[in-house]
Each structure stands twice: as C-alpha cells, then as structure tokens.
C-alpha cells in the first residue's frame, strides 16, 4: 500500500500539468468561427473555451487558468471587448462560469437551433442571478 502512495500522488499532481488548450465551436459559418478561435487562442490567461453561435447570438464560455481564477471578471471583460470589436453585429455573452461552460458542452451536441436558443436565454438569465 505504501509503495503505491507516491505514484498515485504524482499522477494526480501531474494531471494538472496538462497544458493543451482545448477549443470547441459549434457548426456555423466559417469566417466568424475562425476569428473567434484565433482570439481565444491568443489569450494566455484562458485554459479552454467553448463558443456557441445561434442566429445573432454568441455565447463564449471559457475556463481561466487555475491560478488566475481570482481575476475572472477582468478576463471576461477583456475577451468581450475584443470579440465585440470584430463581431459588432452579434449579441455576445462571455462567461468564465463553470455552469455555462458545462452547459455549452451540451449545446455543442444539440442540433435543433430552436432548442439551443431557448437554452441560451435560460443561461443568460442564470448568469445574471446573484443569490
């Protein structure tokens, strides 16, 4: 048992060092997807991101790097500003909340755009909730 402790501990510790940035965008027209992907890739403070396009709405759910969790709101703000510059015609929601990140994963798989839109509205409401 004691021999196993160190390998287990190390493997748990080293899983955190997985540095690859993951980026998922749902199926939409190519130009904008590339632009959004490029912006998220250039942000050093973001670990992974998911972007959902529905009609004129865009939801970007990101996860900040673990040590930078304390300045989440700042990262959100910066990203939103950059996105609004290149996509002024979209209604953009940027969030670093895990709930939105998790739900975005479900939305990526959802085919029916009506349902996606409905869920997006719900998520926006959730984001505004304070207590």
């Amino acid at each position: 048992m004691k021999k196993l402790v160190l390998p287990i501990f190390l493997s748990i510790l080293l899983v955190g060092c997985n540095d690859e940035k993951t980026l998922e965008v749902n199926n939409a027209n190519g130009e904008e997807v590339k632009e959004v992907a490029a912006i998220i890739k250039n942000e050093d403070e973001i670990n992974s991101g998911r972007a959902i396009f529905v009609e004129d709405q865009l939801l970007v759910a990101v996860q900040a790097k673990p040590w930078l969790d304390y300045k989440k709101t700042k990262i959100e703000k910066n990203l939103k500003k950059k996105l609004e510059e290149i996509l002024p015609e979209y209604d953009i929601t940027v969030s670093s909340d895990y709930k939105l990140y998790w739900e975005a994963q479900k939305l990526l798989k959802e085919e029916d755009s009506e349902k996606v839109k409905e869920k997006l509205e719900k998520l926006k409401k959730l984001k505004k909730e304070e207590t």
Binding site: D97, Y98, K99, L100, W102, L126, K127, E129, E130, T131
Partner: peptide, 14 residues
C-alpha cells in the same frame, strides 16, 4: 459544489 452546478441550475456565483 460541482454536483449542484452540474445537476441543478446553480452558477459558481450562487
């Protein structure tokens, strides 16, 4: 925390 976030409508804030 993650249980409530994933299975219920709670955000990190709430």
């Amino acid at each position: 925390t993650y249980f409530y976030i994933i299975f219920f409508d709670f955000t990190e804030k709430t």
